[in-house]
Simulated assay, not measured.
Amino acid sequence: MPRQLRPELEHEFARSPDLGYEVSSDVGFVRCLSHGFPTPLARWHYHDEYELHLITATSGKVFVGDWIGPFAPGQLVLTGPRLPHNWVSLDMPDGGVEQRDLVIQFQHEPLSQAAELIPELKEIFPLLERARNGIEFFGMADKAETHWHHVKNSRGVRRLSAFCDFMADLASCNDYRLLSNAQMQSEDDDQSTDQIHAIVSRITDNLSDQHSAAALAAELSMTESRFSRFFRKATGNTFTDFVNRVRISRACQLLMDTDQQITHICYEVGFNNVANFNRRFLEIKGMTPSEFRKQSLNRFRGAD
């Protein structure tokens, strides 16, 4: 049988109350969920909603996009729409655990539409932008659990108020890290945003090309030093680091979703030699490409 490589898309019709899901017609666009492990809900999957995920028991490996790392009780992660994820417990007692995950799911569109009339909601949009890559928050476990119960136990306007209070605390939290690939930050004006998006699109669409900061600076009528400052402000990375991170991110996707040889992937994503590819991969991911591929196979565990 062919090996499963891609994440499963979670559809609304699969969200049965028997599995712990709240009915959207009863609670609105903010939905709470709690579950133990093992469970059919724990699998390598993605969906259209944001998902805020608090671990309350067990430890193991977490998979978010191209991120592989450890988790333990107290881990709090926000994943963006269609970002694949799974938590695999490795220290379960016999019979599993009754509660491991406290989850909140919510959609983007209601917030986007409401922000047109309620500008205060835009305060959380930088948070939602970062969530495209997955965000792990630190030092928030106790507060997050309290927030979750406030949301869970509320309905109507009170639930919306409790949810907004939770989001405001997350938006103001400065102790976090982004998990999956390179991140673009918001720019101050539309022209800058358009320029950065054009540059990033060119890089991501043509990874095998040799991209030059000097050439891009000239296209924008900037000096190379000014372009470097501009690019770092917008992405949080130097130009070279950003290109390497995007290439490694694409390599991770190929390592996870295909059976291509590592040497072939190296050249496909734009590296000129395998030694440099392995070195950059180790710097960014903390493991070699072959170790990453081996560990990534564990992302399918959890539904047994």
Score class of each variant (00 low, 15 high):
1 M>C: 10
5 L>I: 05
7 P>C: 07
12 E>V: 10
14 A>G: 03
17 P>H: 07
19 L>A: 09
21 Y>R: 07
23 V>H: 01
24 S>W: 04
28 G>A: 10
29 F>W: 09
36 G>T: 03
36 G>F: 01
42 A>V: 08
44 W>T: 05
47 H>G: 00
50 Y>T: 01
50 Y>Q: 01
52 L>M: 14
53 H>G: 01
55 I>Q: 07
55 I>R: 02
55 I>L: 09
56 T>K: 10
63 F>R: 06
67 W>C: 03
68 I>L: 06
68 I>H: 08
70 P>E: 13
71 F>N: 02
73 P>C: 04
80 G>R: 09
82 R>L: 08
83 L>E: 07
86 N>Y: 06
91 D>Y: 09
92 M>N: 15
92 M>Y: 08
92 M>V: 14
93 P>A: 12
99 Q>W: 02
100 R>N: 13
101 D>F: 11
106 F>S: 10
107 Q>Y: 11
109 E>H: 11
111 L>F: 15
119 P>V: 10
119 P>Y: 05
121 L>M: 10
122 K>P: 03
123 E>A: 04
128 L>Q: 05
128 L>C: 00
129 E>L: 03
132 R>T: 01
134 G>K: 09
137 F>P: 06
138 F>S: 02
139 G>Y: 02
144 A>I: 02
145 E>L: 00
149 H>K: 13
153 N>A: 09
156 G>Y: 00
156 G>Q: 12
158 R>W: 07
159 R>Y: 05
160 L>I: 08
161 S>G: 11
165 D>R: 15
167 M>L: 15
168 A>M: 13
168 A>Y: 04
171 A>D: 12
175 D>F: 07
175 D>R: 11
176 Y>T: 11
176 Y>I: 01
177 R>V: 14
180 S>Y: 11
181 N>D: 15
189 D>I: 12
193 T>C: 04
197 H>T: 10
198 A>W: 14
198 A>G: 12
199 I>K: 06
201 S>V: 09
201 S>T: 14
202 R>D: 14
207 L>H: 07
208 S>H: 10
208 S>W: 00
212 S>Q: 08
212 S>I: 06
217 A>T: 10
221 S>E: 12
222 M>C: 04
223 T>H: 04
224 E>P: 07
225 S>C: 05
226 R>P: 06
227 F>W: 02
227 F>D: 09
229 R>Y: 08
230 F>T: 02
231 F>K: 07
232 R>I: 05
238 T>S: 15
242 F>G: 09
243 V>D: 04
246 V>A: 15
247 R>L: 03
253 Q>V: 01
254 L>G: 07
261 Q>N: 10
263 T>V: 13
263 T>E: 14
264 H>L: 08
265 I>Q: 03
268 E>M: 06
274 V>L: 06
277 F>M: 00
278 N>P: 01
280 R>P: 02
284 I>K: 07
285 K>M: 15
287 M>D: 02
287 M>H: 03
288 T>L: 11
292 F>P: 06
292 F>G: 02
296 S>G: 11
296 S>L: 01
299 R>L: 02
300 F>R: 06
304 D>C: 04
